[in-house]
Design a protein around this nucleic acid. Sequence first.
DNA 1: GCACAAATTCAAGTACTGTTGAATTTTTGA
DNA 2: TCAAAAATTCAACAGTACTTGAATTTGTGC
Lengths: 205, 205
Amino acid sequence: MTTAKDDSPARRRGRRPAGDDTKAALLEAARGVFAETGYDGATVRAIAARAGVDAAMVNHWFGGKEGLFATAVLNVPFNLDEVLESVTVDGPDRLGENIVRTFLTRWDGAGGEAFVALIRSITTKPEALGTLKNLLISKVLTAVMSTTGSDRTELRSALCASQIVGMGMARYVAQIEPLASADIETLVAAIAPTMQRYLTGDIDG
Amino acid sequence: MTTAKDDSPARRRGRRPAGDDTKAALLEAARGVFAETGYDGATVRAIAARAGVDAAMVNHWFGGKEGLFATAVLNVPFNLDEVLESVTVDGPDRLGENIVRTFLTRWDGAGGEAFVALIRSITTKPEALGTLKNLLISKVLTAVMSTTGSDRTELRSALCASQIVGMGMARYVAQIEPLASADIETLVAAIAPTMQRYLTGDIDG
DNA sequence: GCACAAATTCAAGTACTGTTGAATTTTTGA
DNA sequence: TCAAAAATTCAACAGTACTTGAATTTGTGC
């Protein structure tokens, strides 16, 4: 429906003059299109058109749509160490604040497009859901939980994940105002206490 | 991929004996299939097969896949009054608790299938996103907010929505354990304080 | 009873998608 | 300088999905 009307740019056939990095162009275009329409909605032709190359290049460079998705979206260069470092440098009392700020900063930047693509692809690509779970729960949150010494770490991790994912959905996918346009610090102030309570506070009412 | 291998049930051609309500059967089947695979993943043939009729009936009764989706998922008979009543009967101090419990109860029941279908379809159907926003923000939360007398009602509504959506994603879509299998009251105890603070508490840190 | 309307299935039509092999141009190495 | 390799586009294939019109059966009013 929103299919961007395949405009073959009428490029000349054959090898291009040096300088063009079509592989990188495809990766960037892929993140954009996957973020906008999800895995199924995104067509190889639309991605190639945005990258300014032919659709066959997807197969040539990534072996197909799956490979492109895996490289562009699943293999997100998400630096776990960065998150954990910024999270564990202060005491456990500021963990919640640091988590919220780190994710928002990360997602507001260019790298966040891959996360939107991930969320938008959850329904049709099981790998996307697996990546989200693995990344968020298995790696980030369990690592964080191990520093708090709290009880019921699994439930606490899941609660944190629910608020993080919900925040991402509201800000980037659903774009609910004024949350979508709010300053990072405004959201940190509002959401960090939630995260902190889920991490170390009372969750029994 | 998970396409349930079109088994045309080899029904006899022509008008069926009275008693069969294919329209209702299609609606129910549609909610199920849409919930499982999202809008794009769901095929008209799979829905028709589950309903025990031919795929052409979708066009005959609903004008096509879009119409079926609109009727089965977007036009959810969601009784707003029920939510608002159970939410406003107690004082404003228990609003958060009531909201969380109401949504969980509703979604755990059969009627919630439409909501899962909604979330699973957000990626490829803009209308699904509009419905979610309209339902959650415009109707439920603004109505609730009007009873609290708090400041910054828009931001508070958006924060509530983020936790509600995140809770739904974690429990029904991503199925993160142990949150996915937890008792409703366990989650109410854990999440209600968040909701209550977003509604009437301090959100400035 | 009988003709007409409604409901249903069947088969084909049309559109679109990912993929592949041939053709063509540029780069690279000896 | 020249041949081989790499990169790119083009055209076509196979698969699948939604849709549509004809054929067929059942229900309904007179």
